[in-house]
């Protein structure tokens, strides 16, 4: 089977694809990137990995029409509340217009291939798609 790699290390592809966060063992603040200590409480005691809900609600979005060369526009960038953890992602599998993308809409995680590199490894990206196709 072809080797696959997630676009970021907080996307887990095994089984049901899902996102994971590092949670501060002292205060419970969650991070998607590597932190030296907790920005919320200052504790350097350590972090544990926690799985993030695969469904969420769209709290904010923009439809980007002007971006750097190489980025396909328009696309929908959004902020998704996944059971209390805020996630940044594109909203995918829906037309990028304000008639189809609405604040508060229910979404679920979706993954898709980004391409295969010269070593034959496929990178996998993620976004959130409408739970109910309108």
């Amino acid at each position: 089977m072809q080797q696959r790699t997630p676009i970021v290390d907080y996307l887990v592809l095994d089984g049901d694809p899902h996102l994971v966060a590092s949670e501060c063992e002292q205060c419970g603040a969650r991070y998607f990137d590597r932190r030296n200590a907790c920005a919320a409480c200052g504790a350097a005691g350590g972090f544990r990995q926690v799985a993030i809900d695969r469904q969420g609600e769209l709290r904010a979005f923009t439809i980007v029409s002007m971006a750097a060369p190489g980025i396909d526009v328009p696309f929908v960038a959004g902020v998704v509340d996944c059971g209390g953890t805020t996630v940044r992602a594109n909203v995918v599998n829906t037309p990028p217009d304000p008639d189809h993308v609405r604040l508060g809409m229910k979404l679920r995680l979706a993954t898709f291939p980004l391409g295969t590199d010269s070593a034959g490894t496929e990178a996998v990206g993620f976004g959130f798609e409408p739970l109910e196709q309108s």
Binding site: P6, I7, V8, D9, F75, R88, A89, L114
Partner: peptide, 17 residues
């Protein structure tokens, strides 16, 4: 980087503009 990203994230995971 700190997200272990294999590709540029702008436009793929939200926007940086």
């Amino acid at each position: 980087g700190r997200y272990g990203a294999v590709a540029a994230l702008d436009g793929r995971v939200g926007t940086e503009t």
